[in-house]
Design a protein around this nucleic acid. Structure first.
Length: 823
RNA sequence: GCCCGGGUGGUGGAAUGGUAGACACGGAGGCCUCAAAAGCCUUUGCUCGAAAGGGCAUGCGGGUUCGAGUCCCGCCCCGGGUACCA
């Protein structure tokens, strides 16, 4: 008798084999069909957490499944290793971010190896590696040269106590600093931007053809937020040259304008505020400065002061009426023109505002008779609008735009909600922006030979008012690469989203030495065939990466026909504990390592696959451990079955005999083939939980049937299929079993194919309903006729008991599955 | 606030508009054992009933349909994103 299933014994063995054999290394000249499976590269938070386990289990399963189907699968691992936590740790403990990060990378690498994930390890990369930084900076310069990077003023969160810039997550909901408790203010700094808005339309159009979850596509469309409308000028009363330009998507509602609003940051603000309102406006601006953007857009209109009068009035160009001008915080400076017209009849937010400030409401669209809301934003007939009366909303829009344009008051305009990407970070632990500022030459890129620009190690991390790099005189001092004169080095670093916007390209060609990657090699592997990551990245990372691919394609670094990086996307659900995302920063981790030491990685992988649909998040609870143990028991059961140990346990006898297959054997064969069919389609549609369930059922069936006696040939065939289908899920155990049974690797055997002969059956279950309610079921021939089915149904005592003497008024038949008798 | 999801037994979940609860976890009972663990078998939504059998049931309220967990409308609650967490 062979020994019991002990993951602690076999898992390290196979991990060593996979690592040393290099069997998952791939090269560009591989003749097999190329395949690129990628998990979003992780922020190295130390040993893997359950979210990682989930992500990499799905990733590794896909890699192994595709490999079993004969594809050359590119699988690589890297680390998003710049970022805030390492810098915070440095401030707290004095440990250098590199030391801190490298230690955590090796922990993460170890835990992913222990999970059994396989990679082409030659391609491993990390954002903070000088080689990687060199090419990040090179790409930045290319974008700058292509006029896709520029500098502009933008506000940051500034903590007066810490004298430092804060990330949004470091600002508490009451607007104070999480560290010092000081009230955080907005401060304007000159910062670098990427011109992602240049690609707004293409980013929007491109969504169409992506094989991505509809949910993510919708989120991206809304984020880009294309809106077609018109810009028009509202003349300021008592001034010849001053007008407030507003953007609206509803020019048809012009006759309903009863006020106008400018944003607190509007450049003309102080020209518009009358003397008598000055004090009040100043007080209001102080209040607004402490509010975050989300707060500005979210606070209930009726609960707090949202705006004050400027004292100025503007003229409604449609009817010449003078309406008051307000300054209010729900209008944002960077969207549209930073000013809006107030139409309370057709916009709910305007309605709320008008109620608070006692402004008139004029409806310009006739709501449906049953409408009992406040503002009405729907379709309808125009009213109260003079020459627009009687038209539909869209007709009136066209007419109003034409009128505004003919009279030189306004013109058509397309606006996007999407803003340019602010890439500057006033931090140390990021990739330095490779620019030198010269008084005479302006912003000059650092010459190629001097890349990468690497931040010095001897910096002071304690917050004293400036970013660590700008306080380092030697680093800051530079000579202008153009004129040679004295100059200043840029001390901002890049947003870590820059690193994650091109790593998938470097994975395809990490061997290039004189360029970030070779175009032909990119053409071989890109796009990524299956990208896998958390739903929390649905917008920012995925949009930035799409932008990079398009920009690099236009610049010529990647093939011109490569316009989208990720062909197919799967967004996994999150692991939650006590109601919120399980993460290191929240301190609510359940470490996977302890499971590796007990039930093993295979059991944990199987658990993550089995516990629910991969796209759903799930809550880690007190009962989770028992489910993991259940998965472990299932693997043990398969182990015993496959290695013929089942009979050594009381209550089970497996009898296999050398004989020709009987009818009972054919039954087992049919189940095996049906399972192959189901599991294969479940793999394809990412329904791993039901695939596991099907394998459990198959296992139960083999046990039960073999207790009755089954031919050795059929039994072996069933077990082999089971092991193969389980292999991408539980690679260690299945490898070990396969080696013991047959020698060699289960992953080189190919994915099992179902024999179609076993998938069709001559009988079906006919459901009989009366009035849509289930009453009986019958086993019938698959080709049963309507007449026969109805006769059988009416003959059923259960049906007769309900129908009694009533005559069927209608019969709905979906043969051979369903018959519904309506009486 | 806005955008995107979700809500089904004691628990995780299953279910091309057609038998609600597959597969597990947990519970109950049994077999094996000196005993236990492990393993194996039976049973398990709620409710009425001795049983046969019936009724109820997919967050709440409406609607469409012969038929709704599934589609539509309106609510409630929970989660993700909201541009410097990644």
């Amino acid at each position: 008798m062979a020994e019991a299933f002990d993951p602690r014994e076999i898992e390290p063995k196979w991990q060593r084999i996979w690592m040393e054999s290099g069997e998952y290394d791939v090269s560009s000249d591989d003749p097999r069909k190329k395949s690129y499976v990628l998990c979003m590269y992780p922020y190295p938070s130390g040993s893997a957490h359950q979210g990682h386990v989930r992500n990499y289990t799905f990733g590794d399963l896909n890699v192994r499944y595709r490999a079993m189907n004969g594809e050359a699968v590119l699988s690589a691992l890297g680390y998003d290793s710049f970022g805030l936590p390492a810098e915070n740790a440095a401030i707290k403990t004095g440990i250098h971010p590199r030391t801190f990060t490298d230690a955590r990378i090796s922990e993460l690498r170890d835990s992913l190896i222990r999970l059994g994930a396989v990679y082409d390890w030659r391609r491993e990369l990390k954002s903070h590696d000088p080689t990687y930084m060199k090419w990040s900076q090179y790409i930045f310069i290319k974008l700058y040269e292509a006029k896709l990077a520029y500098k502009a003023m933008a506000p940051v969160n500034w903590c007066p106590g810490c004298k430092t810039v804060l990330a949004n997550e470091q600002v508490l909901s009451d607007g104070t600093c999480e560290r010092s408790g000081d009230l955080v203010i907005k401060k304007d700094l000159e910062q670098w931007f990427f011109r992602i808005t240049e690609y707004a339309d293409e980013l929007l159009e491109g969504i169409e053809d992506l094989d991505w979850p509809e949910q993510v596509k919708t989120m991206q469309r809304n984020w880009i937020g294309k809106s077609v409308g018109v810009e028009l000028d509202l003349q300021v009363v008592g001034s010849d040259d001053l007008a407030v330009r507003v953007f609206t998507t509803r020019p048809d509602t012009g006759f309903g304008i009863t006020y106008a609003v400018i944003s607190p940051e509007h450049p003309d603000l102080w020209r518009l505020v009358k003397k008598e309102c000055k004090v009040e406006v100043e007080e209001f601006l102080d209040e607004v400065r402490s509010r975050s953007e989300i707060e500005r857009l979210s606070v209930d209109m009726t609960k707090s002061k949202r705006g004050v009068r400027t004292g100025s009035y503007v003229v409604n160009p449609f009817n010449g009426k003078e309406v008051p001008l307000f300054v209010a915080d729900y209008v944002l400076a960077h969207y549209g023109t930073g000013a809006v017209m107030g139409v309370p009849g057709e916009d709910q937010r305007d309605y709320d505002f008008a109620k608070v400030y006692d402004l008139p409401v004029i409806r310009t669209v006739l709501p449906p008779t049953n409408f009992d809301g406040e503002a009405y934003a729907g379709e309808g007939e125009k009213i109260n609008s003079e020459w627009l009366n009687g038209l539909s909303v869209s007709e009136a829009k066209d007419r109003a735009i034409r009128w505004l344009e003919e009279n030189g008051i306004g013109k058509s305009k397309v606006n996007y909600r999407l803003r340019d990407w602010l890439v500057s970070r006033q931090r140390y632990w990021g990739c330095p922006i490779p620019i030198v500022k010269c008084k005479t030459c302006g912003y000059v890129p650092v010459p190629f030979e001097e890349l990468p620009v690497i931040a010095p190690d001897d910096v002071e991390f304690l917050p004293t008012g400036e970013s660590p790099l700008s306080r380092h005189p030697e680093f800051k001092k530079a000579n202008c690469p153009k004129c040679g004169g004295p100059a200043e080095r840029e001390t901002d670093t890049m947003d870590t989203f820059v690193d994650s916007s091109w790593y998938y390209l470097r994975f395809a060609d990490p061997f290039a030495e004189d360029k970030p990657f070779d175009k032909d090699v990119i053409a071989k592997w890109m796009p990524v065939d299956q990208y896998i990551g958390g739903i929390e990245h649905a917008i920012l990372h995925l949009l930035y990466a799409r932008f990079f691919t398009k920009a690099l394609s236009d610049i010529g670094l990647v093939p011109s026909d490569l316009r989208e990086p990720f062909k197919r996307l799967f967004t996994q659900g999150m692991v939650r504990l006590n109601g919120s995302k399980m993460s290191k920063s929240k301190g609510n981790l359940v470490a996977p390592l302890s499971y590796f030491d007990t039930v093993g990685a295979d059991s944990l992988r199987l658990f993550h696959l089995f516990v629910g649909p991969p796209g759903d998040s799930f809550d880690w609870t007190d009962q989770t451990d028992t489910i993991i143990e259940g998965c472990h028991r299932f693997l043990q059961r398969v182990w015993r079955l496959a290695l013929g140990q089942a009979e050594s346990f009381p209550g089970v006898t497996i009898s296999t005999v050398d004989r020709k297959p009987t009818d009972s054997d054919l039954e087992v064969r049919a189940i095996v083939n049906k399972t192959i069919d189901k599991v294969t389609s479940d793999y394809e549609r990412w329904s791993y939980n039901t695939a596991v369930a099907a394998l459990m059922e198959l296992t139960n069936t083999i046990y039960r049937k073999s207790a009755e006696g089954v031919s050795k040939e059929v039994f072996d065939e069933a077990v082999d299929s089971l092991i193969k289908m389980l292999a991408p899920m539980a690679p260690h155990m299945t490898s070990e079993v396969w080696e013991r049974l047959h020698g060699g690797s289960v992953f080189k055997t190919g994915w099992p194919k179902a024999d179609p002969a076993f998938l069709v059956s001559s009988e079906d279950t006919l459901i009989i309903q009366v009035g849509g309610k289930f009453r009986d079921k019958l086993t019938v021939p698959s080709d049963i006729s309507y007449e026969d089915a109805l006769e059988l149904a009416l003959a059923s005592p259960k049906v007769r008991a309900v129908i009694r003497d009533k005559a069927p008024s209608k019969v709905i038949a979906k043969l051979p599955r369903l018959l519904n008798i309506v009486v």
